[in-house]
């Protein structure tokens, strides 16, 4: 299916932020070449919340890393705000959240969040302002002076999100940020993330293993399949932007989840 169709479906002019065209990425390893991405075409528009779902090894992380200029494609193009990923990075276009919080143990939470601000040359006062704003955003007010080990896993992950938000990037790339957390904490963080997205209007690329998580959060769900890594389906969510947790019990939600599951199964078909 052509992934660009939905622009016509929505009928409104959209503002493309991340555009991948015929993207290929092949890793050369000792065991031979690995096609992590093949012929990936995808447009992520301003304000979209796009989830990437698929079995491990299907190139979800690789796609995000190409967008963040941490990997470079071997074929095709990917642009961010009309620029190359490297140029976009120079302009602080995105914040990146890794699977592990990766806070520096020798820095307090506040100092961790200020890390990108220090590097980007924000003034002391401006650093403090940004810090206070994002601490509030992730509900960690009063924890600034704590060291990472003094916080639970969920709080550490929130601090790492705050760090990615601190410098006002319009794009947030998140690679299984809640993968290591238990379900209750995860539900809570999902709710908070949605609220944050609603408030800030950021464009979010989000990798997950969980179908309910993908359906709950996304405006669009990209289903991927491995060997070679490719997009097999793009599912448009019909859920409203306002999403209480119990929306997950509505028939509409279950219908979308079903479609995602079908998509995953179809992608897997010739593995068996």
């Amino acid at each position: 299916m052509a992934p660009l169709d939905e622009e016509r479906m929505n009928g409104v002019a959209q503002d493309p932020v991340i555009v991948a065209e015929k993207l290929d990425l092949t890793f050369q390893t000792n065991d031979g070449a690995v096609q992590a991405l093949r012929d990936v075409n995808l447009t992520i528009n301003k304000g979209d919340f796009v989830s990437f779902i698929g079995p491990s090894g299907c190139g979800k992380t690789t796609f995000l890393r190409v967008a963040a200029a941490l990997e470079h494609p071997t074929g095709g193009t990917l642009s961010v705000n009309g620029m190359t990923p490297d140029e976009a990075r120079q302009q602080r276009a995105y914040g990146y959240v890794f699977q592990a919080a990766g806070l520096y143990p020798w820095r307090t939470i506040a100092k961790n969040i200020k890390l990108p601000l220090e590097i980007m040359g924000y003034s002391k006062e401006s650093q403090q302002e940004h810090l206070e704003r994002v601490l509030k955003l992730v509900d960690l007010e009063g924890f600034g002076e704590k060291f990472p080990w003094q916080l639970s896993g969920g709080m550490q992950q929130r601090a790492s999100i705050a760090r990615a938000l601190a410098f006002d990037a319009d794009i947030l790339l998140m690679d299984e940020p809640f993968g290591a957390l238990d379900e209750i904490v995860r539900d809570h963080l999902n709710e908070q993330l949605l609220a944050l997205w609603e408030r800030t209007g950021k464009t979010i690329g989000f990798v997950t293993h969980s179908i309910p998580e993908a359906v709950y959060l996304s405006t669009r769900i990209v289903v991927m399949s491995p060997r070679p890594g490719r997009i097999t389906d793009v599912i448009e969510s019909t859920l409203p932007r306002e999403r209480p947790l119990d929306i997950r019990d509505t028939p509409e939600f279950l219908e979308i989840a079903h479609r995602v599951r079908e998509g995953l199964r179809a992608g897997h078909a010739y593995d068996d």
């Binding site: 990075r89 590097i119 410098f167």
Partner: peptide, 12 residues
């Protein structure tokens, strides 16, 4: 690598 990549994303 993750700690180094993080700094890369800031163009450090």
């Amino acid at each position: 690598n993750m700690q180094l990549d993080l700094l890369s994303t800031y163009s450090a």
